[in-house]
């Protein structure tokens, strides 16, 4: 299986190299060898590009932290009573269905062209999966447990901490993983829309100069970063939810 996948990868790279190579000149699809060369000669060597990549990572992490905190607090508030859930959950789902990307010019207008707009847009993309999954998770709590806890004198905070949270964990960590994907999307969209120092600036620079090799290299680095963050979120999800599937199924 792995061998087959490696073979596919090798064939793709060779075909790409062969197809992109012979014409020469102003080709738009750079061959892998040129991309590798650009990666080490231009992209990784340039301090400005390196700091732009780290800066984007910083924006993603800030937006993600805010999205998780905000989604958790709002979700607990909406999910804690039947009335609030019935009233506001449909509103949340409705808002979730709107393509947020059309608000991007507005976000830039309000937050400027600096990192604040990227973090805000990443947050608004990341908060919904957390929110929706927290609310959905709290709905899965067996009402008998809540009633039992109440009967034994538990306060609202005790119920949330000791009854609701353990039960919504599976759903919550799924939300955390999805939020990582959407936060990345939001930050990248905002970077590409307008950027004076981040990766968006460099992608635009390379694209406008018809310099595809470093553009491919930069995109490749960001793709690796995206995969690493996704894998991190996925392993956290597995780490904190395997006990549940193991004990209940």
């Amino acid at each position: 299986m792995l061998a087959a996948r490696a073979a596919i990868l090798a064939v793709t790279l060779v075909a790409w190299e062969v197809a992109a190579r012979p014409t020469g000149g102003a080709d738009l699809i750079a061959p892998p060898s040129a991309i590798a060369q650009a990666l080490f000669a231009t992209v990784l060597r340039d301090g400005a590009i390196r700091s732009a990549i780290l800066f984007t990572l910083f924006e993603v992490l800030c937006a993600y932290a805010l999205a998780v905190a905000g989604g958790l607090v709002l979700g607990l508030a909406i999910g804690s009573t039947e009335m609030a859930r019935r009233s506001f959950y449909p509103v949340v789902l409705l808002l979730y269905a709107i393509p947020q990307v059309v608000m991007l010019p507005l976000v830039t207008l309000v937050f400027g062209i600096g990192p604040a707009a990227k973090i805000a847009f990443g947050f608004s993309h990341g908060v919904f999966p957390v929110l929706v999954n927290v609310i959905a998770g709290m709905r899965n709590v067996n009402p008998l447990y809540v009633r039992a806890a109440t009967a034994m004198g538990a306060q609202r905070a005790d119920i949330i901490r000791h009854v609701m949270f353990p039960h919504m964990a599976t759903s919550f960590f799924t939300g955390l993983r999805l939020a990582m994907t959407t936060t990345l999307l939001g930050v990248i969209l905002a970077e590409l829309y307008v950027s004076t120092a981040g990766v968006g600036y460099f992608t635009k620079l390379f694209a406008e100069n018809f310099d595809p090799a470093p553009l491919f290299a930069l995109i490749g680095i960001l793709a690796v970063m995206a995969i690493a963050l996704n894998e991190l979120a996925r392993s956290v999800e597995r780490r904190f939810t395997h006990w549940r599937t193991a004990s209940t199924s």
Binding site: M1, A4, R5, I8, L28, I29, T181, L184, L185, I188, L189, L192, T203, K204, F206, A207, F210, P212, L215, F216, I219, L222, A223, A226, I227, N230
Partner: peptide, 29 residues
Amino acid sequence: RFLTAVLEPVISALFSIPITLFLPLFILV
């Protein structure tokens, strides 16, 4: 079945990369 077992994880791994990253390439090409 072999192709499914080999390619399905590849396609789903590719889907975890935000395609938005490639937007400048789409514009370029």
